[in-house]
Computed example of a mutant assay.
Amino acid sequence: MNRFEGKTVVVTGGNKGIGFAIAQRFASEGANLVIASVEAQVEEAAAALREAGAKAVGVICDVTDREAVTALYDRAEEEFGAVDISVQNAGIITIAKIEDLTEGEWDATMEVNTKGVFLCCQEAIRRMRKSGNGGRLINMASGQARDGFIYTPHYAASKFGVMGMTQSLAKEVALDNITVNAICPGIIKTDMWDYNDRVWGEMLGGFGPGELMESWVQNIPMKRAGEGKHVAALAAFIASEDADYITGQTINVDGGLIMS
């Protein structure tokens, strides 16, 4: 399929994990990709997309910095024209008991996960309205936007914020032919897998290497972890014309782990 032939897609946090899987999916369907990250490896990820036949550029961007976000969308328009789809995927997580959780950790998590989504949505909406072509905004929430988990109140709060923001913006821009939806990934096998297994496992106690994540997987009705491609498939659907009457929704991709 080439559903996104000629479409310009911005993906923040697009150099690895779920973000890169989303970029790959859009690239496979003909989109022009602008992937952003604070990490220098973002250009390597863009090069990998180009080697696979896609039109793609990598941009170093701190999504908490308004000027950097503006420059990101400027670059997208310079390279490929008006932005049609913007995926707000950049995010961070730390894990700590409440007595050890620092104000700095709280602020940094809210800055990246919530403010970063706000700044990117704001800039994308401004440009989509100017182009008059409508558009799609896809915000990355989390299973923790449904059910906050232990030792991560700051992360849960940031993702609940993404869900609320998605609903509010969807109502505001509906008549501009812009849809706004969010995705809640569940337990997804990414580069964060080992970190989560180790740190949560140590804090909860009684778990050896790999045992905690495996125990979580056993709580999933499908008895298997998700992959980036599963989240990417939903992102592609939400961005397609088939989803032009879907907005303000937050959709789980978790094998049935959370059914709400």
Rank of each mutant, 00 (worst) to 15 (best):
D244T: 13
V69P: 04
A232D: 01
V217N: 08
V69Y: 12
D254W: 08
N2D: 14
F160I: 04
N219K: 15
T190N: 05
W216R: 11
F207I: 02
C184S: 15
E227T: 13
R66D: 13
E214F: 06
G132H: 08
S215T: 14
L137V: 10
V38E: 13
D65S: 08
R224D: 11
A236C: 14
C184L: 14
G14K: 03
G148Y: 05
R3E: 06
E241W: 00
F160T: 02
R146C: 12
E51H: 10
V10A: 03
N177A: 13
G205D: 08
G161W: 04
G53W: 03
A235G: 05
G161A: 06
E227I: 10
N219A: 13
C120L: 07
Y195P: 00
E79K: 11
G256F: 12
W216P: 06
A40G: 06
A45D: 01
G30H: 05
I220M: 06
A174K: 05
D65P: 01
A68K: 13
I238E: 03
V173D: 02
G143A: 15
G210K: 06
R3M: 12
A52N: 07
A45T: 09
E172N: 15
T8R: 06
S168M: 15
G81P: 00
A108D: 15
H230P: 03
E214C: 10
G186T: 05
A235M: 07
Y155T: 01
D147A: 15
D100I: 02
T8E: 04
Y245M: 14
A36I: 04
L119N: 02
E51I: 11
A36C: 07
Y73L: 11
T94A: 09
V199R: 13
R146D: 09
L234D: 00
H230V: 07
V199C: 10
A27T: 01
A182I: 00
E111N: 15
T190E: 03
D254P: 09
A145D: 09
V231R: 00
Q41C: 13
V34L: 14
D242V: 09
M213W: 09
A71I: 09
I60N: 06
V180C: 10
V180W: 00
G13Q: 05
P209G: 08
A108N: 14
A71T: 14
I178G: 07
T12I: 08
G256C: 11
V38W: 05
L212F: 14
A47T: 13
Q122Y: 07
R50T: 11
V9Q: 03
M203K: 13
A71G: 08
A90W: 00
C184D: 10
L49G: 08
V9M: 00
F80M: 00
D107T: 12
G53R: 01
V180Y: 02
G116M: 04
F80W: 03
N113T: 09
R66W: 11
V112I: 12
F207V: 03
R146K: 15
Q167P: 04
E43D: 15
Q167F: 06
F20Y: 10
D147L: 15
S215W: 07
